Every structure is written in C-alpha cells, then in structure tokens.
Amino acid sequence: MSDIGRRAGLPIATVYRIVGKLHSWGALERCPDGGCHICLRLWEKGVLAPRSELIEAARPHLAELCRRTSTVATLAVHDGGDSVCLLSLPGEAELQGVLMEAGRRLPLHATSSGLVLLAQASVSLQDEICDGPLHACTAATITDGAALRSCLAMVRRDGYAVVRGAFTEGRGGISAPVFGGDGAVVAPLGALRVTQLLSETRVAADAVTKRIRTETPRFTETGP
C-alpha cells in the first residue's frame, strides 16, 4: 500500500479506500505477501474496448507475417507520447527477435512503430514531442527536434520506418502503418534483408487496413 501511495502521490488512507473498492469490484486481487495484482475483471472489461477488434483484425495477418519471415510480428498503437503493444506473435529460431509483452510502452521517437505512429498523428502531438525533451535511450536515438521532424517527413513520404539501435543497442525494427485503426505493424530486423522484410511487413499492414475498412466500420472515422 505504501508503494502505491508513493507512486500515485496519494495519502495512505486514500489508497486503502480506493484499493478496497477495486478489490470488491474484482479489479484487484490481494496477494499473500500483502501486495495486490490486477485481476480478471479488468481483462473482461478490456476485451470490450474497440482496440480488441483491431487486434482480432490484425491477428491472422501478423501470423502470416511470422510464418513468411520467421520473425516476431507486433501490432502497436500510440497513447500520448508512447507506442503501446497490443499484440506480439513469436517467430522461429534465431530470427525471432524479442517477443514484446502486450501493454508494454515504448517512446515514440526511439522506435520504428513510434515513428510511424507519430508521423501520422496530429500536428499538436508532433509539436509536443519534437519541442519537448527527447530522451536518449542509446547513442543512435534522435534527440534533436529538427532532426525528428525531418525523419517524420521521410516516414510519411516513404510509408514506413526503419530503426537500428535507437532504443536497444544491437536491435532494430521495421514498421508500416495501419490506416483506419491508428496502428502500426512491426517486425524486427534480423538476418533477412531490409527490402524483403519491408515488403512482407507492408503487405501485412495493408491487409489489416483492408480488413478494418471492410469489416470494422467504426475505425474508418478515426483517420490513419
């Protein structure tokens, strides 16, 4: 409880009251050591969100991308200044890369998915990210606002983003946008040539876009 209070900036009495209500509702479960963890009730509510439809629309195409390239395939969306992983499917053997946990957040300016999402985001969000401090995750991270704006213009022009070592040294990714669902399909750079991986990734992203626009009309109003 004290950890929650410290991180939330709330008095311990308030934390006890809120946690008690969440526990009664089924959102939190108490652990034997006195801590808490998220419970099934939140997952039940989460699958009712529109994003769950985006996940199901993307799943078969990400699975095909995994099969054709033997790499991890990931679906991400943006939330504020972060990209958020919605779905990550494993590849095979030495090409599989790192399987990302659903819900993991990564900075927009330091990842291929983030650059694709930011390039298609509102001008106000682009200004906020480019004008704000840009944390250097590695020596390859873009930390200059003008350089980031130039990079975003190139991503919009080319329709994809390739990043090498900007978030984690020795690792990279390639991403293509999903239009109509505010998303991006991501595959890690590995032994495959960039041109081959780019082609497969864009095919997957285009297939997800088509499925969203034909089967999930609510997303067509949200833009890219």
Rank of each mutant, 00 (worst) to 15 (best):
residue 1 M to T: 12
residue 3 D to M: 01
residue 8 A to V: 09
residue 9 G to Q: 13
residue 9 G to C: 08
residue 9 G to P: 06
residue 10 L to P: 06
residue 11 P to C: 11
residue 12 I to P: 04
residue 22 L to I: 08
residue 23 H to D: 02
residue 24 S to F: 02
residue 26 G to D: 03
residue 26 G to Q: 08
residue 29 E to H: 03
residue 31 C to K: 10
residue 32 P to A: 11
residue 34 G to W: 02
residue 36 C to N: 07
residue 37 H to P: 03
residue 38 I to G: 13
residue 40 L to R: 05
residue 43 W to I: 07
residue 44 E to N: 05
residue 44 E to Q: 07
residue 46 G to Y: 07
residue 46 G to A: 04
residue 47 V to E: 09
residue 55 I to K: 05
residue 62 L to F: 02
residue 63 A to P: 03
residue 64 E to H: 05
residue 65 L to M: 09
residue 68 R to E: 08
residue 68 R to A: 04
residue 69 T to M: 13
residue 70 S to N: 11
residue 70 S to I: 05
residue 77 V to H: 01
residue 83 S to P: 15
residue 88 S to R: 04
residue 89 L to S: 09
residue 91 G to V: 03
residue 92 E to M: 13
residue 96 Q to S: 12
residue 96 Q to T: 13
residue 97 G to F: 01
residue 99 L to N: 01
residue 99 L to I: 00
residue 104 R to M: 04
residue 109 H to G: 01
residue 109 H to Y: 06
residue 119 A to L: 11
residue 123 V to S: 14
residue 126 Q to R: 10
residue 127 D to R: 05
residue 133 P to F: 06
residue 133 P to M: 07
residue 138 T to W: 12
residue 138 T to C: 13
residue 141 T to S: 02
residue 141 T to M: 00
residue 142 I to E: 03
residue 143 T to K: 02
residue 147 A to P: 03
residue 148 L to C: 06
residue 149 R to W: 01
residue 151 C to V: 08
residue 154 M to A: 15
residue 155 V to F: 08
residue 157 R to I: 13
residue 157 R to K: 15
residue 157 R to F: 12
residue 163 V to H: 00
residue 165 G to I: 05
residue 167 F to K: 00
residue 170 G to Q: 08
residue 170 G to R: 10
residue 173 G to P: 01
residue 176 A to H: 05
residue 177 P to S: 08
residue 181 G to E: 02
residue 182 D to G: 09
residue 182 D to E: 11
residue 182 D to A: 09
residue 185 V to R: 01
residue 186 V to L: 15
residue 187 A to T: 13
residue 187 A to I: 10
residue 187 A to V: 09
residue 189 L to S: 07
residue 191 A to L: 15
residue 197 L to T: 08
residue 198 L to T: 00
residue 199 S to K: 13
residue 200 E to W: 03
residue 201 T to M: 11
residue 201 T to I: 10
residue 206 D to H: 08
residue 207 A to S: 01
residue 209 T to I: 04
residue 210 K to S: 05
residue 212 I to C: 02
residue 221 E to H: 09
residue 223 G to Q: 08
